[in-house]
C-alpha cells in the first residue's frame, strides 16, 4: 500500500494511518478511498493526488 501526496498542499495520505477524522480507518489503501474523499488539509479532490 503506497502513500499518496496532495499536489496542492503537500499532505501525505498514509494508508497505515488512514484519515480517522473523515471516518477512514487505518489500512484503507488510497485507491479504496471514497470518490468524494478530500484532502483533510486543503480540501483538494482525490484527482489532485499522486503516488509519493
Amino acid at each position: 500500500m503506497g502513500k499518496y501526496v496532495c499536489s496542492i498542499c503537500g499532505y501525505v495520505y498514509d494508508p497505515e494511518a488512514g484519515d480517522p477524522d473523515a471516518g477512514v480507518a487505518a489500512g484503507v489503501p488510497f485507491e479504496k478511498l471514497p470518490e468524494d474523499w478530500v484532502c483533510p488539509i486543503c480540501g483538494a479532490a482525490k484527482d489532485e493526488f499522486a503516488p509519493e
Binding site: I8, C9, I41, C42, G43, A44
Partner: peptide, 9 residues
C-alpha cells in the same frame, strides 16, 4: 464559504 488553501487551509 470555505475557500480552503486560498491561500491557507
Amino acid at each position: 464559504m470555505e475557500t480552503r488553501m486560498l491561500h491557507w487551509p
